[in-house]
Structures are given as structure tokens and as C-alpha cells.
Simulated scan of single mutants.
Amino acid sequence: HLDAMASIANAVALGIERKQVEEERVRLWVLAQQARSEAEDALQVRNDFLSSVSHDLKTPLTVMKGTLQILQRRLKRTASVDPLWALERLKIQEASITKMHGMIEDLLTIAQVQAGQHLDLDLRPLSLFPIIERVVTEQQETTNRHHLCITTFSKDLQVRGDPIRLDRVVTNLLANAIKYSPDGGPITLDIRAEREQDQTWIVMRFQDEGVGVPEADQPFLFDAFYRASNVRKEIPGTGVGLASAAQVVHEHGGTISIISQEGQGTCILVRLPATIEPDTSSPKPERKEHI
């Protein structure tokens, strides 16, 4: 009987051991499949990113090359060039260079963040409204299918910030609103002051009527290289603009968030701490159209 019981015990132990080995084998196989899937996803993200960056950098370079070729041909045909005609071509060159510079700045911002570094900010007291007004005017010149306007209760928007970085934030958010509203339409930048405990905040709402963002994508929208599922294959992009803007806002002590519904448009909210209480005594908001 003892031998039989020992044999049974050994058989049970062997069965348990085999089951544990099989379970471990299955677990390792699942982990390997997950790792492979994640690696393939990362590779696809990298390839999509490189493709988009190459496309986005190539476009302004193509414009610059074409403009220079036109200038060269004109100069070869005639000794004199109409100054107004030349000035218009130079403005095209400047716009292309500005676009490329902004893209490179976004990439450098993301690189610093991923390296665990803080941004090198040139903080100073400044008025935010002239930056906003200039960027809105510049962005309106890039489209004739959208109508950009500013609504504000006050132009006295004093913050402590880096003017170049904040310019880039407003540029990115307006450019995004234009890009993801392919059918055109109104884009509104609403600015107001909100008091919360002992701090006054400058709140900017960038509202468009574009494709919107699916709810499942919204928590990740400000992550580097992330793009919403409804636009990945439809609209080219790198996924760095919003991530760069978010990092700049955070390092200014502010917050950025999104309210959106797929197919119904998007509102991006940016809150920056004000250094001086704005004068909001105006009975109604001022609305400035850029058409």
C-alpha cells in the first residue's frame, strides 16, 4: 500500500509539475507575443513619424526652391525686377522658413522632454494679447476656408512667460484647428480671466467645428507622437505639435485640456497664471474678425 501511495503521489507531483511548466510556457509565449506586438507598434509609429516629418519638411523646402527658381529666371530675363513682385516672393520664402523653424523647435522640445530635461525658458513679464493677435493674423493668411476670430473681455492679459514659446503654443493650437477642420468654417479663440482662490488665470479656448477626437483617444492626445484614431490614415501629421504645446504650458505653471466629440469639433483649453488682475469691466466682449 505504501508503494502504491508513493507511486500515486509521484504521479500527482509530476502532473502538477508538468502543468506548472506548461502554464509557464504559455505565460512566456504570451509575453513574447505582447513584446513583439509592442515592438511592431513602436516601429510603425516611428515609420509613420519619419514619413510625416519628411513630408512636412519637404513641403516648405519645395516652396522655397520653386520661389528661388522663379526669381532666378526673372533675373536672367531682365536686369530689373519689380520690387513689389520680389517682396511678395520673399514673403513666401519667409513663411516657409518660419514653418520649418517651428517644426524643428517642436521636435527639440519633445527631445528635451523625453530626455528628462526642463525647457530653457526666457521668462519675462509680457502682454499676451499682442502675441495672440499677431498669430491669429498669420494663421488667417494660410487659409481662405476658415474664419478666425478673437473674443475677449480684456486686452490686458499680463503673464510671466517666454514670448517665443507662447507664440509657438498659440500657433500650434490654431494650426491644428485649421488642419483638422478640412471642410473649413469658423475658428474662435475666446479669452477671459477666471479667479480661483487666490490666483487669477488667463483662460484661452480654441474652438473649431472640425472632425473632433474620439473619446478613447482624448486621454493620450498630448502624448508625444500620439494621433487620434480617426485621422491617422486620413490627415498627415507627426503627433508632436500638441505634445510640445502641452509641455510649454505646463512649464509656465499652466494647464491644458480638451473637450471634444467626434464629428462635432474640438475645444482646447489653456490656462496660464496671470501676473496682474485684468480689467474686465467692459460690459460686453470685444470680437475681432480675421477674414
Rank of each mutant, 00 (worst) to 15 (best):
H1D: 09
M5G: 07
A6N: 12
A11V: 11
V12S: 05
V12I: 15
G15I: 10
I16D: 13
Q20N: 10
R25T: 00
Q33T: 03
Q34L: 15
R36G: 06
R36V: 02
E38W: 13
A39F: 11
L43V: 00
V45T: 06
N47C: 04
F49P: 00
K58N: 00
L61G: 00
K65R: 12
G66Q: 10
L68E: 03
L68Y: 11
L71G: 00
V81T: 12
D82Y: 01
E88Y: 11
R89D: 06
L90Q: 10
I92Y: 08
H101E: 02
Q112H: 11
Q112I: 00
L119G: 07
L121C: 07
L123P: 07
P125R: 09
V136C: 10
N144G: 08
T152C: 09
P163K: 09
I164S: 10
R165Q: 12
R165N: 08
L166R: 07
L166N: 02
V170D: 02
V170H: 01
N172A: 03
G185F: 13
P186R: 06
I191T: 06
R195C: 05
E196L: 11
Q199T: 12
G212I: 01
E215G: 02
A216T: 03
D217I: 07
D217E: 09
N230H: 08
G237D: 05
A243S: 07
S244N: 05
S244Q: 09
A245N: 10
H250Y: 10
E251P: 12
G253N: 03
S257A: 14
S257Y: 10
I258V: 15
G265F: 13
T266R: 05
C267F: 13
I268A: 02
R271P: 01
P273W: 13
D279M: 05
T280R: 02
K284L: 15
